[in-house]
Amino acid sequence: MIQVENVSKSFRVAKRNAGLKEAVKSLWYRKYEVVQALDRISFLIPEGEMVGYIGPNGAGKSSTIKILSGILTPEEGLVSINGRIPWKQRKEHVREIGVVFGQRTQLWWDVPVIDSFCLLKDIYAVPNIEFNNNLEELTALLHLEEILRTPARQLSLGQRMRCEIAASLLHSPKILFLDEPTIGLDAVSKLAVRDFILKLNEAKKTTVLLTTHDMQDIEALAKRIILIGKGRILLDGSLSELKEQFPNRESLDEMIASLYRRYQI
């Protein structure tokens, strides 16, 4: 279970105007602006639920994921995941979660994928039997047989993403955070990834928190969505209820766009 209560977080950003004069001036003096990345957000995700976490760029999605995975400490608020505070009991906590960053890779670039997997096995101290079972299952479900022996740098984006997802699940985490897992993928790879996540959730009751800009991801995977904008939770409800509010809208994208307009984000 993921419990988030009144969590806030802010950052400092430097500003400068254009031109030579301004450039010279900023040698001595720089202006900073405080950006409120998260402003008292709260939500609760019970075990086994799949939730879509959406919002425009810079809304605070990644900060939330970082806080939930123990990389970032919030200024205020409480987070409890399966009874642990992520940033206080980091090592115990991360053993139980899997994280996929769509824009970054965790595979070692120059070695075959399977070697990266074996190293992860040792890092997480996964017992042999469990590792072999997981590997077999993931290989079958994500169709990895052909690519396990290829160095990561030679994989296509879709192949790599399938490997990334497998890499995050080798230690059988109970919770999976997916940060834009389908970004840049072709239609076939997208469907394969979605299909896999659905099966995973069904079979293992893995809790999934998914951020994405692809509304079809949401439609396929999440019954519940949380909308965040300018660091605040604007909406938290089921997708079907939301659809009823917009009976005339034809596509999900249009619906989300009008939601963004409604909240001026």
Binding site: K66, I71, R90, K91, V94, I97, F101, R104, I123, A125
Partner: peptide
């Protein structure tokens, strides 16, 4: 800067 340290914090080591 490339986020590798985030990944390191995500590992139980």
């Amino acid at each position: 800067s490339n986020g590798q340290f985030d990944r390191i914090l995500l590992r139980p080591r």
